[in-house]
Design a protein around this nucleic acid. Structure first.
Ligand code: MN
Ligand code: MN
Ligand code: ZN
Ligand code: ZN
Lengths: 138, 138
DNA sequence: TTCTAATTTATAATGATTCTAAAGTAGTGT
DNA sequence: ACACTACTTTAGAATCATTATAAATTAGAA
């Protein structure tokens, strides 16, 4: 009745025990066609609705952070008081709608190749992140 | 003995009374050759050292926020728990050194022109911000 | 089944930021 | 110069998201 084996494997293979809570959160985050962006608060609310037995807030934090550490989630800080987690862990850029705070993926081909001309001695580039803020155009 | 008149004017012209505290913070932030990046905590420490009579933390928050609202500062959120203020209010991009958390300005000509091919109906672009994370290259 | 370490949980602690409301100050008008 | 008022500063309290704690539960191994 359940199609959990893939998540159980995923968890096991990264040294995380496949608990009910982690499997539930895996299904919620990764068992979908499209990737998405969420806050801890979003996830917490969704779980509150979708689930019979409550998952404690501490577990939600722990799980999201361990998924991030394992590379299953990226964290994207858009401003001082809003930080999203992203189930799309590939290198990609974002629109941020400053009217709604919605974060929207840009495909890599949507952004002309970025070339950084300056270099800092002894440092190498780890990643390049573009945040395009958009607003109502009326 | 003081060269405060320029800051007094700046404050007055934006409807802020030139108080001792605001003038002191203006001098500290804007009376320098190079722009710079700071956190509230940085500023608070600098003031603690440089000043005889203490400025209360609430005033530091209030002042920085009103300077931001007046457009004298930009805020740059680099990750969930670090947000910088920037005395360089022009459009420009940044290196973030992920080993030291230092933020370094990129001149506009250091970043090849960025072209966003995708558009969202009813929305227009407000700004484009590039954050280039760098790390030790050894 | 038994044992152990990992995990979950409720709750407390933390800490950065914001709020409050009382005291102080700058600008205006007389 | 003085008085008046709105603005500002201040210390301390309140808030709230996140992290820590430590007891109960559970998963995996033997
Ligand atoms: Mn959200
Ligand atoms: Mn700093
Ligand atoms: Zn994304
Ligand atoms: Zn800058």
């Amino acid at each position: 009745m359940e199609n959990n084996s893939i998540f159980i494997e995923k968890l096991r293979s990264s040294g995380l025990r496949p608990t009910k809570q982690r499997i539930k959160i895996c299904k919620l985050l990764f068992d979908r066609k499209k990737t998405f962006h969420f806050t801890i608060n979003d996830l917490s609310k969704i779980l509150k609705n979708e689930i019979s037995k409550k998952i404690s807030l501490a577990t939600i934090y722990n799980t999201v952070h361990s998924f991030k550490k394992k590379g299953y989630l990226k964290e994207i800080s858009v401003n001082k008081d809003k930080s999203y987690f992203d189930t799309n862990t590939s290198n990609h850029h974002h629109f941020l709608d400053i009217n709604t705070n919605e974060l929207i993926d840009l495909k890599n081909e949507d952004v002309h190749n970025i070339k950084i001309k300056k270099r800092i001695p002894g440092k190498k580039i780890n990643s390049i992140e573009v945040l395009v803020k958009i607003e109502n155009s009326n």
